[in-house]
Amino acid sequence: MAIDPLSNARSERRWAFAMVGAAMMMLFAIVWASLSPHMNPPSNIENVDPNTLHIAGEFTEDNLGTQVDAKGRVTTRIVTSQFSFAPECVVVPQDMQVTFRFVSPDVIHGLLVVGTNINTMVVPGYVSQVHTMFDKPGDMLMPCHEFCGLGHSQMVAHVRVVPIADFKPDENGRVACAEH
C-alpha cells in the first residue's frame, strides 16, 4: 500500500484534540462568568400556589411594584397574567442591587428587559427571581417572550431606571411610576 494507512487517523486525532481544547476554552470563559461577575441563569426553586396568589401574601394586588424594605433592599414584584403585566410600569434605582420576583396565576409567561441580561420564564407554581443592577437610567421595554395565548403580542411592560437621587420611596417604602 502506497499511502500510510494511519496518517488519516493521526490527522483526525490532532484535529479532535484541537476541537476539545476549543470547547474547553469556551467552557472556562462561561464558568468564570458565572463565578466572578455572577452571570447565572435564574434558578431559584421556590413554589407558590398560582390559584390563590391574589388572596393573601406577597403577591396581592396592593403589594405589587417596587418596595424598599427596612434593611434598604429593593424588591420589585410583578404578576404576569393573560395578557398583561401588573403593574405595567415599575421604577427601580440605578446602581443598586434590585431583586425582581415574578409569578403567574394562569399559564406560562416569560420576559426579558431589552438591552440587559434579565431574562426569565414565569412558570405557574414557581416564583422566578432575578437579582440584577442597572447602570444606566432610562425606560426599558419588558415584553412577554413566551406564547401565552392569543393576546401574547400585546403583553408589554416597562422598567424605568432612575438615578438614586430621584428614587424616593414613600412612607411604606413603595415607589410607583408616575402617570404618563
Partner: peptide, 15 residues
C-alpha cells in the same frame, strides 16, 4: 454556541 453558553443564554432566550 451562544445559546448553549449558560448565562449567555439570557441575552437571547426566546428572541
Amino acid at each position: 454556541l451562544i445559546n448553549m453558553s449558560y448565562g449567555m443564554n439570557a441575552m437571547v432566550h426566546n428572541t
